[in-house]
Design a protein around this nucleic acid. Structure first.
Lengths: 336, 336
DNA sequence: ATGAAAGCGCTAACAC
DNA sequence: GTGTTAGCGCTTTCAT
């Protein structure tokens, strides 16, 4: 069944392969009766074009890779959803490539030992250095996502992290909070993402002449809610006083929520909390999360467009695109 | 750069393509000096085997599709993680194929018009009927996941849903709960998953001579936390009295938690809540969720093994495997 | 141990 | 409007 070839259809219909190919591709210059005859043969035989053959012949695979740390992180799952939706518009399917946030994982992505599997890569690096990414083999179009240091030669699309972090921190300050902590950055090997968000956090504090207290920085041993819960819990138990918490992401915020509530602290009355990413669950937590919502649709669209241009042969300098974000105000840090 | 072919390497090394191929595949019968010379040529040219060529020649793609409704549902994301990890062991990569829980989506999966893209499919259907799946084109190995009605001719791996639902409901009964509701099944078009869980819920109630009250069934307009929150909230506001809640999945439980807490009800004191799936976040909610934890590792492993056998040509009757699960007791419904 | 050559299934010039 | 034919890059008998 699976072995019906173009040739077989041509045989049955009594035409050449080219004609069958024309029918399959809806080429216009085919006489109606020929088309009918061919279509009948196709149906009769249950012919399905073999992708590998087509791809070998055309040199295009119709596949792009989407690479990030881990699909079980809601933000990435939601990104994957949107990307595969938008990629379909361009006739592409998406191969997920998880790096687990490790250097080996990321190296495997940019230095893949096989060619021709995918036409291009959308890559959100976590740990890889700018210079190393730049040395990736030059034949595969890559567009980087997110705020990791990307070489100037690569296209990149991201949101303005520093500004957004400033916004969210300022929001807490406007609420009257004065002892605002930061939760969820890596214990060691700070990612570019965390660095930028910390920078914005610090800038906002300084703008308001609030002290930047290192003892209010609660690093997490993993990008996870559990890690953040532990970090915040430990700080609280050791007597740290806070009335606001800027979280690196919604997962960290969920962890922080638990640590606070477990200890009888009320959110937002005692401690206001903000997240980042606007994952689906952020609206359903109790309290729901005030958070930074990057425009995922735009992010995916632009990234895909840049990648498509590269795939079509564009070879200019790296483009650098910013995508808008919103501050979504919810119960965990209301406006007043 | 991207156009280095096996032939080019052969040319540079002064050997035949076959020899280069032997080196690439670590074939043993190659003299050391030849191997060195070839390897040098490979490195020099930066040769990377082209997958499409290889695949056309071998007829194997090295890709399997994993198909389910939506990666943004945590259970599926976690399933995807495990599957792609285990698939790598067999030398396979995973192509995600979301159906969005629609009939068209599921039809696209089993009736794909292209052949040769993947060697097999792991498919968790939501809405498609047993008979329709059975009519899928016979040339592509498929293993179904989950509790949807699968035809006898297909392999399937799942957990015992009815029994697990009985367990979790009995747990609430043992806690002394008497007005136990069920949350999160579809409003119309009940999935097989929901049906089985509802069955187990009902069985447990009947075994304890507790009334099965239809007004305690809170359907949700989507498999989402928000949908469950709305459903439970509406019920509560209309005066429904409950002291326990069996949720179709952890997402529904999270939604239920919010609806309850928002109205000042304490969990578990006033209402005990259970989830299903043991997603990462279930341990970090406040309160953390008592939940059914299917053994995902085993599930993925067995499914993959069955699929690999099919890919290798096994053509017997459909196998039906059960995978164990655990009842994880946490704060939302403690033991006493 | 290594080479020559025939495909794998499809596409795309180029003829007719 | 339709047929011929030469690849795409790799694997794989079958020779040597």
């Amino acid at each position: 069944m699976g072995s019906v070839r173009l040739q077989d259809v041509a045989g049955l219909a009594g035409v050449s392969m080219k004609t069958v190919s024309n029918v399959v591709h809806d080429y216009k210059h085919v006489s109606v009766k020929t088309r009918e005859r061919v279509q009948k043969a196709i149906d009769e035989l249950g012919y399905r074009p073999n992708m590998m053959g087509r791809r070998l012949a055309t040199g295009k695979t119709g596949l792009i890779a989407l690479s990030f740390a881990d699909v079980t992180i809601p933000y990435f799952a939601e990104l994957a959803r949107v990307v595969s939706e938008k990629a379909a518009v361009h006739g592409y399917r998406v191969l997920l490539e998880e790096t687990l946030g490790t250097l080996e994982g990321e190296r495997a992505v940019v230095g893949s030992s096989e060619a021709g599997l995918v036409d291009g890569i959308l890559f959100q690096p976590s740990v890889m250095s700018s210079s190393e990414i730049a040395q990736h083999r030059g034949d595969l179009p890559i567009v980087t996502l997110g705020e990791s240091p990307a070489p100037l030669s690569l296209d990149r699309v991201m949101i303005e992290n520093v500004a957004a972090a400033r916004d969210v921190t300022s929001h807490l300050i406007k609420m009257g909070r004065r002892r605002i902590g930061f939760v969820g950055h890596e214990i060691n090997g700070l990612s570019a993402t965390s660095t930028q968000r910390l920078t914005g956090y610090q800038e906002a504090l300084e703008q308001s002449n609030l002290p930047v207290d290192p003892s209010l920085l609660f690093a997490s041993d993993a990008i996870s809610a559990a890690g953040a819960a532990t970090a915040v819990g430990r700080a609280l138990d050791s007597g740290v006083q806070i009335d606001g918490l800027v979280c690196r992401d919604d997962l960290a915020a969920i962890g922080a929520l638990r640590a606070l509530q477990e200890r009888g602290l009320r959110v937002p009355e005692d401690v206001a909390v903000t997240g980042w990413d606007n994952i689906h669950l952020s609206a359903v937590m109790f309290p729901s999360l005030t958070t930074i919502a990057p425009n995922l649709d735009l992010l995916a669209e632009r990234a895909l467009e840049l990648l498509m241009e590269r795939i079509s042969g564009y070879d200019g300098m790296g483009r650098h695109e910013l995508v808008p974000y919103d501050l979504i105000v919810r119960e965990s840090a209301p406006s007043f």
